[in-house]
Design a protein around this nucleic acid. Structure first.
Lengths: 254, 254
DNA sequence: CGCATATTTGATAGATTTCAATTTATGTGG
DNA sequence: CCACATAAATTGAAATCTATCAAATATGCG
């Protein structure tokens, strides 16, 4: 099960180097990370709430949600992870999970032991920096989610979420396009702090007003500018398009 | 203005060592951080949205809010920082601010140049680790805020917020107690995703039902267990009571 | 084919917002 | 210390959005 060169680690590395500057050595340390693949079932926690984990998980295929809940059992998704993301990167420095991780649809993950990541980061401070930075992008996204559920109505919430995911999947290529999005309306509700019933109605409205057609396996964006406007969406906070000269490195050696 | 030993840095260091294990050397590096104090006016951004900053800010006195907003200008506070916090620690690895920082009431901060923090963290990997870990606690709090605005009603939202702040201020000492909380109802509304009017009504209800009396400068908790229950509040995610043997250190040397 | 899960629709209730006004604090200069 | 200006808190009534409850229809899967 264990490899030394995995294409999926390459994708994770690409994510890191899109924002951070890493030497060849440091990049090799990522690619050489010990890991093994695993399938994850839909609607099944592969990291439980409060559990102490000893590995982080790179998403290879499928979507993963970070789940919290209130006392009544009402579930709230606080983050959605797409392929290439390290879903619980934070667990490297904070192994006790404060949220559960669950696949929104069946998929594949790559488990990377904390020990391997820690060894690499300990040897290469700039790696620790890059991982830390990536965690902070997750933080910026989380912050936007608070705005989304706190200060936007149902239509805007859903539009904003669709825009965020499309952008993070690098799917935005035209005014009209489609991208895979394997999520139930129920999970859409859990991500936006709404009820399923209301999500269903808003989706119909988005379709009828020619903004987007959200189906079971795929989202068809019908009018990107209009959808982005409806969702009050701006792209910058996601840092998906960091120019080479904007990439950062703090720690020596350069 | 610049000192080498500041009591306020000691408070920040205490915060770090409550969760991370640091050697004497590493601790000295924190205490020796170059910095200078500054007053911050109430309702005035001292870090603007989108601004690129070259220093982080330790809160010495007062409360600081992290502000975002939607297209209509509706403001949403996504974090409240209390004395001892480094309000924008994340800016060390991500200098471009995705949220504004504003004092909720007049206060004092300690500006610490990124250069100083980076030098210290570069020399002591375990320091970088401790800072990273602290950022992740902020992330866990943020995650709870999403649950708060997404899946709780007005009364629970406010109760939860009060419990969070009381806990982070280490104010919880009995069933009944008071703690300073210099925040307008308007900012309470911005933190909970409600309107001022409704906040006002919920506060009255909390008072009348004997849970808490929220005044302009101070909150008097009348019945902590009841307030925590109403706010669906559990303490663990805040990691304010990490036992010595639970503190972490990943990087050598031990 | 049949069960389980997901989507859709309707009717009604309820929580929260909005709008508008009034009262109460807070701070400042004379 | 008072008068004034300003910000904050409070209250009421009406409008709206979203939740809740209940049921029917689709869809996928073994």
């Amino acid at each position: 099960m264990s490899d030394t060169r995995r294409p999926d680690l390459q994708r994770f590395l690409d994510r890191l180097t899109s924002r951070s500057i890493l030497t060849r050595d440091e990049q090799d340390a990522i690619l050489g990370l010990n890991c093994h693949a695993a399938h994850v079932r839909a609607n099944h926690d592969f990291v439980g709430l409060g559990e102490t984990v000893d590995h982080a998980s790179v998403i290879v295929a499928g979507l993963v949600g970070r789940f919290d809940q209130n006392a009544d059992g009402g579930r709230q998704i606080t983050a959605i992870h797409v392929p290439g993301d390290m879903a619980n990167l934070h667990s490297v420095v904070q192994p006790q999970a404060t949220s559960a991780l669950q696949a929104l649809s069946a998929g594949t993950i790559l488990r990377v032991p904390h020990s391997a990541i820690r060894r690499a980061a300990g040897r290469h401070p700039a790696l620790a920096e890059a991982l830390w930075r990536d965690c902070m992008v997750d933080g910026a996204i989380l912050s936007q989610w608070v705005v989304n559920v706190g200060r936007r109505d149902a239509r805007s919430r859903i539009a904003h979420l669709l825009c965020e995911i499309a952008t993070r999947l690098f799917a935005v290529v035209a005014t009209r396009f489609a991208f895979p999005f394997e999520v139930t309306q129920s999970n859409l509700a859990n991500a936006t702090g709404l009820t399923v019933v209301h999500v269903n109605r808003v989706l119909r409205a988005l379709r009828q007003s020619g903004l987007a057609d959200v189906r079971r396996h795929e989202v068809e964006v019908l009018d990107w500018p209009a959808l982005a406007a409806a969702g009050d969406f701006t792209v910058d906070y996601l840092q998906t398009e960091t120019r080479p000269d904007e990439r950062l490195r703090i720690f020596e050696p350069r």
